[in-house]
Design a protein around this nucleic acid. Structure first.
Lengths: 204, 204
DNA sequence: TCTTAATTAGACCACTTAGTCGGTCTTATT
DNA sequence: AATAAGACCGACTAAGTGGTCTAATTAAGA
């Protein structure tokens, strides 16, 4: 019992430090030794808990990254109100934390997807699965919004979801290169203009 | 004279092969030897023409990538017609070539920007400069569109440009993970809806 | 043809990488 | 206290890594 706790604690420490370094320097550009040095641990410890660097990365994806994305982008839009406003709010909130994070390096998910494209197909799959979760949540929210009269009937929910995801990925990449505050403001403005075109028109 | 030609030819061969491999496997995940092996050249040849791997990469960026982006995304929107339709056309055309490229790994520029974020600040700067060129072209086009009556006066050209770039970056990343054709169609649909909200309203 | 310079070959160096393995310490069980 | 299992250490290996250097080859000009 105490044992398992210690085991999990060490694994968690490794994963947290690993994610931080992978996110900062990229997966291929971060060595296992880098992570170990940061925690004053040894090779033995690492390979006792994980059987390879890749498996380690996958465990990070499935434990930490899923969580991050879910709590920041999926859960907030599971309400019953106007999809457009709750989506806008969740994106804006997420951009705000990015803006105030001095070491922001872009959207974790899209960075890793870009890096593992072609190479590392297995890892890439796990990452895309997370994107898919977000996509489904968006689509669900939009569909419900139709029944509730918030979203125009003719709207293609799939298309809107893909477009929203695209825009978010792109703006995060640009924000990481400076001028985050300004970009965030512009983004929300345009997102709003876009959403306005998808609202049911008042009869006149 | 013959010399210079040969020199340039070899450099070009190295750059083309380098870009291909960097694009496929990432910059950090491609060794100089990989490139050399592909061309049956030796270390000596490489370091005779380029003084380091990084300088080599920068030369690729400034020769090949600039060209690619310019001819695909900047030049096509330098017309005098409706900005929205020429922008839409240039993006669609660019997505079409991506769709039909079986080895599409996403948008070259954004992939490299993501990879060199934090690490490799110099390289990152050169890449962002190219994005900037595109941004300026978009803004110019939109501004001209206002005088010509294609774009509503109240529109924030900077914001629209940033938003268009974002969306394009994001959709390219998603397209690389399969289902390209469908995504392209959805993207253009939504882009059109968005643009409609930025057109001057007919007086009624 | 002889000389000189441009270009390429490839052995070599110092260093880093992911992963292994025999051993050690620590904790739980009897 | 004795035993066993869990957790960790750190030297080591084999395969790369970017980059250097000398020698060989090729082409140009006299």
């Amino acid at each position: 019992m105490e044992q398992t706790l210690k085991r999990l604690a060490t694994m968690q420490r490794l994963q947290v430090a690993g994610l931080e370094l992978f996110y900062q320097n990229g997966y291929h550009n971060t060595s296992v030794d880098d992570i170990l040095k940061k925690l004053d641990l040894s090779k033995g410890a690492f390979y006792y808990h994980f059987k390879s660097k890749e498996e380690f990365f996958i465990s990070i994806i499935q434990n930490l990254i899923v969580q991050k994305v879910y709590s920041a982008l999926v859960q907030p839009i599971e309400g019953k109100e106007d999809p457009f406003s709750i989506i806008e709010n969740s994106l804006d909130a997420s951009l705000e934390t990015a803006e105030h994070n001095f070491f922001d390096n872009g959207f974790v998910l899209s960075n890793f997807i870009a890096e593992t494209q072609g190479k590392d197909p297995e890892v890439n799959t796990y990452l895309n699965d997370i994107l898919k979760i977000w996509e489904v949540a968006l689509i669900t929210s939009l569909q419900k919004g139709k029944s509730d009269g918030y979203v125009a009937r003719h709207v293609d929910s799939d298309g809107v979801a893909a477009y929203v995801i695209s825009a978010y990925i792109g703006i995060r990449l640009q924000m990481a290169s400076g001028n985050a505050k300004n970009l965030r403001y512009k983004f929300v403005q345009q997102l709003r203009a876009y959403f306005r075109s998808l609202v049911p028109q008042a009869i006149h």
